[in-house]
Design a protein around this nucleic acid. Sequence first.
DNA 1: GCCGGTCGTCGAAGCGCTTCGACAGTCTCA
DNA 2: TGAGACTGTCGAAGCGCTTCGACGACCGGC
Lengths: 334, 334
Amino acid sequence: MSGRAVTIAEVARHAGVAVSTVSYVLSGKRTISADTRRRVLDSISALGYHPHAGARSLASKRSNVIALVLPLRAGMHVPVLMRFATAVVTAARRFDHDVLLLTADEGPEGIRRVAASALVDALVLMDVELHDRRVPLLRELAEPSVLIGFPAEPAGLTCVDLDFAAAGARCVAHLAERGHRQVALLGAPAVVYERGTGFARRTREGFTAAVAEHGLEGVALPCEETFDEVHATVAGLLAARPALSGLVVHNEAAVNHVLGSLRQLGRRVPRDVAVVAICPDDVAERAGPPLTSVLIPAEEVGREAVRLVMRKLEGLDVPDATLLTPHLAVRAST
Amino acid sequence: MSGRAVTIAEVARHAGVAVSTVSYVLSGKRTISADTRRRVLDSISALGYHPHAGARSLASKRSNVIALVLPLRAGMHVPVLMRFATAVVTAARRFDHDVLLLTADEGPEGIRRVAASALVDALVLMDVELHDRRVPLLRELAEPSVLIGFPAEPAGLTCVDLDFAAAGARCVAHLAERGHRQVALLGAPAVVYERGTGFARRTREGFTAAVAEHGLEGVALPCEETFDEVHATVAGLLAARPALSGLVVHNEAAVNHVLGSLRQLGRRVPRDVAVVAICPDDVAERAGPPLTSVLIPAEEVGREAVRLVMRKLEGLDVPDATLLTPHLAVRAST
DNA sequence: GCCGGTCGTCGAAGCGCTTCGACAGTCTCA
DNA sequence: TGAGACTGTCGAAGCGCTTCGACGACCGGC
């Protein structure tokens, strides 16, 4: 299996056809008789032939690789990123593409490099921020791209994301249905709002709008991620609003600390305080008690991003914005 | 910046030299006069030239890409994987290489594919298990590879990992120094031990050996990851061993639940029970109270893996096994 | 003053693939 | 029955780069 690699010429000789015929069998770009096709395919598997990626990309101007660009900062919680990543890889493979992983360390220059060197055909950017340095570059690039998340100025770009506003609103609606009148949102750390991360803000907007719509009383607070800070926030919140009975938590790292704080403060979940989280399913399931939650559909988002970028590669039209509908899973915490 | 890409021929014409001269300026494989070099470099940046990756890989038989293969299952906790991944990417860029991300979905066949198609020059496998289906393939591959983690039969392979046995022992030694006589290890979920994941077992072995060496009493238990199960385990443990005063936790997902259970059971940390964790630093820092911990040095492991694989690419000798020394950070929990 | 040895540069031969145009052979239908 | 349209296959021309051998120009040593 080692040694020098098998080339298309050897396959052609083995099958008794021309090199171009082998190529057409593989690409399906011209009709080939069933008989010839079979002989070629047999030779391919007999010899263990794998086309040389570089040669292919040189001749066809397609590398069959897409770039997956990691976020500038780990604003979104890390496990979620990993899911996006595996979802993107899996989806890309279905389209016969591989995935090149790019960190943000290199910044826009790295994106330009892989695009200009034809290493990749297209790009998927994860966890885009409102004012993302990489976004202007994407506009001038010939290669198609899809963003996961929304920048402030999405005109001319293709963006996919969970509809966080709807997610925030969905949580409020659920609490309202359950009869809660006074609710609060514990969100991302303050610094995340300050640097304008879209999903944090959009959740808060959805929350606030829904609170008004349902005629509830509500407050939205940022939430740090150490136990002591979470505890202080929760304690302060409950002291200031004794009647508060519904909590929306949109912060994966803090979810368990919130529950711990409530226990320590003697509030039972869900009897005294109902809790809805926006977080991955496994975090919600492992919590004590298991949390009613809106999951972050990483797989779905990743798949959709790849689907869109593939359509763009084929020159097809795609919608500028794709918002995925949030789904609420009811568990023991409400 | 878009439109047809700049080729080496255009750079050569612009600089008034031969194509080969430009190539030699770029690769440094032949001496070039300072004057010519400058002219060529000026032309390169004036035209914004980026060598075509496919053409380069075809001509040079080097793609300058390494594959990063994700684990078969998410045995190790996910954020740690993400760190490995970014560390590998960052380190690879220092060697002028990019990183192709491969999931385990494809299994060994995916590895063979990217190797045989010359898409990648070398491979780094993350989180290798004791009996890993992908390992036999690596032995017959011409491309060099490095494993993060150890399979049962590591002969002929290059492996890197944190020295988990030493990490387990280090935790025990720390508790012994603090005067604890009865200690316990809460490890990975049972299923992880059953499928023979190396790092979980090695930590347990190190723990057990150190317990004997220090003349302590100790027990090692697997530990599930939902709050209720963790709580049951912790409660059972404390009931069975009232004198237990030191706890080693090697399970990221359960760490916060362990602390929550102790709180709920009225045990103060560290006064009643001291806790040492083996987990990433940020998890330890965010816990309540912040945990004394042995961190999993993902960055270091990733960097080392890349360094080794690059040496192998150059045909240099590398050690079969690289074990990184664990470091203990003392915080409030002991 | 000539010879052997660098040094710096060039031209050309591939690397393995895709794709275009060409062309026999078949089929269809007036 | 012959013109025209397909079908299935081939040969050859690149794609953009690296690398090998060649070759002036210049050097120092005798």
